[in-house]
Design a protein around this nucleic acid. Structure first.
Lengths: 194, 194, 194, 194
DNA sequence: TATGAATGAGATTTCATTCAT
DNA sequence: TATGAATGAAATCTCATTCAT
């Protein structure tokens, strides 16, 4: 299972396209192979099984989020500014890759429990970073000292997720990124002391 | 397609149990029929196809939410109090029916795009009620006049949804209902003018 | 798994024909279904899986041997006469069902270890009857008192088996049944005291 | 197709080991290549295809039997003594190479009809030698003049084969070689005039 | 000679749905 | 209305073999 060879990336990218265009249940291995320009059997030189392709898609793409967020967190900015950048980043990555948006918001959710469990493990890393952001806000006295961190993070992630899903279901008709300031403002006020 | 006969309800209830206990992908029509105490073929006297069973499950159960929320909205209460009651109601219905919680938060999400679009149509009714609540808040000057209603509602629904899903994924180990005040408070502040 | 319905027998018989005519590895379930005049899926109402079909073929057909041998053993005959009848019976059943002969002597031996283990269990019943025959011969002093029963039975079965396999490999060109007296005579002498 | 180079022998020996340890159906070409310490493709410089490896295994190993038997036949011994030595030799070669015993008695029998016909061709050479032994016995008046040579040889081979297969299936728990005298005695008596 | 990455054909099994009774 | 036996389409994965290097 080589994870570095160009063919590995070819197949992951092909999977995103095929799933976005055909839907999760119509994304047969043979379609992915065709899109990637390799034989069906070649897939299995790089992935253990079909599930392994899907979890890899998620892992590879989620890495982009994590990397960006990490960068934002290390900057010397106020929490309100960081929060805005986090939301904007989340929105931007998905607006700029419409296929990926469909895949993460609609298609991959159709996967079975096993796969979703694995996806959740990948998501945890992202969640931890969101937790860090909020914790920092409390420490710096920018957010309420009484904030329930878990609930706050669930509000953050749930709001972004629902906003994006609605946008995808509305066929990505409006500009998502420009909604980020309003969203982060609402969240911020929710997190602040009265 | 009789929607009133007892057998219709029998089958819907059987579906909830079977899906919760076996998972979406292991909820075969024959299992549902067995649980309902009818023959496989009988299912098709009451439902067009399997998807029709699932959407019916959602529609029937969602009716409980809508009914409750409707009642709350007509009461003579402040928005902050109504918001609390809405969140509490949402949490309570699902905490009191663990099978249903599993089905709505985890299992039904595995359905295909078509079914999910239909589910979203059912959800719309609920969304409209949430919109009304927020609108009323703006009109009564309890919420910021600059509130973006759609985003606000997405924050409301997204936060509740994510909170419940996390709770289900944590095997419903803690008390969900008691989180309602904190959640509604955070939301409320987010919706208010500084 | 109904073992009595006519369709069960239909499928078993079809399996014998298909395996004999196409060979073990070319006996696809769909071919068997076609030969039996049922749909592919119907097979799985009567058999757990493909292996279950094959072991059933063996079990059903072996029952004929066991039944016949049992009958012979209960007759009031000399051991030499019983031995002759046993050999003759073995040869006759297979000569009269050329398909079955091909299946038992050539095709079913290609099965994997698991299946062969199960087949051996079925064979054991037959082996035990052969043991009884030889034991009776010793008790009645018709066979040498020093006979090693296990080796004697291995000689009996091995000789019959090799004789039939050679006959099958020679495309069943000569009369097998008429060889029974010579074969049983040779065996008998081998079992007798000098 | 060089049959002399060391790599040819390396591969044949690797095949015996891989088949014995993994079973016929789990003996992939790539496993054999790995065991032999060569690349998959290299196999095809020495063998036409996989079947060719297997038939080669059989041919190479059978040569040992043929050589030994030839030697025995040329000795100046009574038929009864030669028969004993033949049986003993057959048992000894397999008892001393447990891997080979498993391969010849269990695994190679799972091969398809084509391969088994080829194996039988190789076996024929051995069968001819057994025929010669029996013929010599008749000529020297040590065996019955009325012996049916083919049946007698089938009894000889079938008995040895079944005895060894039982021993292998019993996990080679007892001493096989020491059974040779009893076996050859039973056979001898069967071949002699009353 | 030697390599090993790539190929692609092929079959078992499940399960939603039908329809004769 | 109700039954349940029968249907049949459809997809993952393996592995012998090839061939460019």
């Amino acid at each position: 299972m080589k994870r570095t060879k160009p063919k590995y990336k070819q197949i992951v990218d092909a999977a995103v396209i095929v799933i976005a265009e055909n839907g999760y249940h119509q994304a047969q291995v043979s379609k992915i192979a065709k899109e990637a320009g390799v034989a069906d059997g070649t897939i299995y030189l790089y992935f253990k099984n079909k599930e392994d392709i899907l979890i890899s898609v998620f892992r590879e793409k989620m890495a982009i989020f994590v990397e960006n967020i990490n960068e934002i967190l290390t900057k010397d900015l106020s929490i309100s500014e960081k929060l805005l950048q986090v939301v904007e980043n989340h929105f931007r990555v998905l607006q700029n890759d419409p296929h990926l948006a469909i895949v993460t918001q609609l298609e991959l959710r159709q996967s079975n429990k096993d796969l979703r469990f694995q996806i959740n493990n990948v998501l945890k890393e992202y969640m931890i970073l969101l937790d860090q952001l909020l914790e920092e806000g409390v420490e710096k006295n920018e957010l309420s000292s009484e904030l329930d961190l878990r609930l706050a993070r669930q509000m953050l992630f749930g709001t972004m997720d629902e906003t994006i899903t609605s946008w995808v279901m509305n066929e990505q008709k409006y500009d998502l990124i420009s909604l980020a300031p309003k969203v982060s403002n609402m969240l911020l006020r929710g997190y602040q002391q009265r």
